[in-house]
Design a binder for these strands. Structure first.
Lengths: 190, 190
DNA sequence: GTCTATAAGCCGATAGAC
DNA sequence: GTCTATCGGCTTATAGAC
């Protein structure tokens, strides 16, 4: 594959994704991203205005892939709505057992940038979370369940609560408990 | 008040609490904490082994005060269990409107230290969250509601989900929605 | 126990060559 | 568009005086 500009840019973003997720955005230096991408820092600054720009690009690059993963887990599961939603939580529980799991990159970035509410990366996180909530609402409507907006919001509250508490306690049981609660409110026990 | 050792130590911890919560633990330097406390860096390092030690002390110092605030909000509210628990969420929604609000310090620290699971500060956060969950379970038992453990866990999932999503979206409505959901599962609508 | 001073290295960002 | 080289400043932590 020829090394053109778009290609180099993607290589840098991939390196940023890997390092920022693994170690946190403040802990990872621009030098480290450049080295991992196999380019010099000067090249990195040719493609990105600043480290903040790179951080925002990192999260924007994860929006669609993460949403698609949720959709796939949902669609691959047979049964009623409650079972399909609960399957998302079961997959997250399994993922959280992996030694490289570090919680939700969007939430962790918002936590690291809590003193900069208007930061583009925080906005990217907000947009992603809204997209997930909106998609869930659409699926709940499609399943003919009432109060879809309220229920979608409760599901994402449980999901992001589990992301946070599993990160704190390192105990996947919080994903299981959240999944059971989500299934229950979607009529999974009826 | 005489400036003795315990006094100096407390002054340093107070400065750390204020700065670490406002700006994040990685963003705040030891120099900044020492300056805010009105001591030199050498004095700070006399009282604390390292910055990590100071970070852990910061969170440990917030365990009891935060729990006591929750208890007070709960006890000051008249009515059934569901209303008393929902009041906690209403107070959090109000607090989150303050311009200096930055989410939950325990969750934000766990997010910043996600690559160091055994860090003493993360353990302090885990202990605090367990204490809140345990206290809620006790109150649910005392109110004679069934499945107290499961319900306490669902309440903390909703609460920490709201902490996270209000930080991302800067929208207190997530605290209100979480409070309504918590009240509902505790029989508030029955 | 608190001070002044500084070590030793990493940080984000830039200059200028080609 | 990518390179080599480096700036000025900030970082955690320590040495030695009193």
């Amino acid at each position: 594959m020829p090394r053109n500009a778009a290609n180099t840019r993607k290589t840098i973003v991939d390196a940023a994704v890997s390092l920022f997720y693994a170690e946190g955005i403040r802990r990872v230096s621009v030098d480290a991203v450049a080295e991992k991408a196999g380019v010099t820092k000067r090249t990195l600054y040719y493609h990105f205005r600043s480290k903040d720009d790179l951080i925002a690009t990192y999260l924007e690059s994860r929006d669609l892939p993460n949403l698609q993963t949720f959709r796939r887990w949902f669609e691959e599961t047979d049964g009623p709505l409650a079972a399909k939603v609960e399957a998302i939580f079961s997959h997250l529980a399994r993922a959280s057992r992996h030694p490289k799991w570090r919680g939700c990159g969007f939430l962790r970035t918002a936590a690291e940038l809590a003193n900069m509410p208007g930061h583009p990366a925080v906005k990217a996180g907000s947009a992603h979370k809204k997209r997930v909530e909106g998609w869930l609402a659409d699926e709940i409507v499609a399943a003919g369940v009432a109060n879809a907006q309220d229920k979608a919001r409760q599901v994402v509250l449980l999901m992001d609560g589990a992301f946070s508490l599993v990160l704190v306690h390192r105990d996947p049981a919080y994903f299981e408990a959240a999944g059971a609660a989500a299934a229950s409110l979607l009529g999974g026990d009826g």
